[in-house]
Design a protein around this nucleic acid. Structure first.
Lengths: 142, 142
DNA sequence: CGGCATCCGAGTAGATACTG
DNA sequence: CAGTATCTACTCGGATGCCG
């Protein structure tokens, strides 16, 4: 017993969903036309994920605040990611034209919706990490 | 009306989950100690995702079969990803010592479990892609 | 057929310094 | 404070050729 058993039925269901998703898409432009890939690009990114998670934890953070939380990120990358995340609508950016300026970042509703998915995924990952690590250990005979 | 509304309650729930997840983790080694990140690494990868999805669609595929399906992937990367996916337990690799050899890849139960998560995420992405693309269009004034 | 070894080019991250 | 600019270093993907 390693993980919960996957029934044949579930497999078929998955296959059907996949068929609906890209069964009709020509293979050749699967990654060109795929907007999903595009959206998923955010998941892919280590820093973006951390930024979003920290903003789910601390509702509002400023640039240097984020920089402290997201340990190890450089100015450049943080600023890039923030711009991208704001541009894609995950974050809301509010600027207060004081002196010195104050800029606050927080999750948008869309960002929160995304965060929920991200948390689900993370929970799954935590539940199964031992499985992966176990497998990895077993194959440590290169 | 852009996306389903996120209630305050949901936000609080997310925050609590996050707290449980890494509230106790020291920031400094968040990405060192984080096994989740590790597991998530697979999601991050464009090719791995495609491989897993195609194997959810076609139950069994061989090297060159995969290469045809996962259009545009190079031998090197395919072989790397396969090795990694097999090593992490997502895929099962069966070799038939015929001449010429035949090697078949299929999803393990763990892989199927992962695929379900992946599909969920993809469905979410599809549902929200317009939102992202819309946002992106709005911010096209750099 | 099912890969692995090698080389090369492009993109990306990181560190540091500087500006409104 | 909230970034931008620049330079370097390194990784990663793609193409090609070879081997059991």
């Amino acid at each position: 017993m390693e993980i919960e058993t996957i029934t044949e039925n579930q497999k078929v269901t998955s296959a059907k969903k996949l068929k609906k998703m890209f069964g009709h898409v020509d293979l050749r432009d699967a990654d060109l036309s795929c907007p999903v890939r595009d959206v998923l690009a955010v998941v892919s990114d280590k820093w973006s994920t951390l930024i979003i998670m920290y903003l789910g934890y601390y509702p509002v953070l400023r640039f240097n605040g984020l920089k402290k939380k997201v340990y190890g990120i450089s100015n450049k990358v943080l600023s890039e990611r923030l711009k991208q995340l704001v541009g894609d609508g995950y974050l809301k950016r509010t600027m207060y034209p004081e002196v010195p300026v104050r800029v606050e970042y927080e999750l948008s509703d869309f960002g929160h919706s995304y965060l929920e998915k991200l948390i689900e995924l993370t929970e799954w990952a935590q539940k199964h990490k031992d499985c992966v690590l176990g497998n990895r250990a077993k194959y440590r005979n290169t």
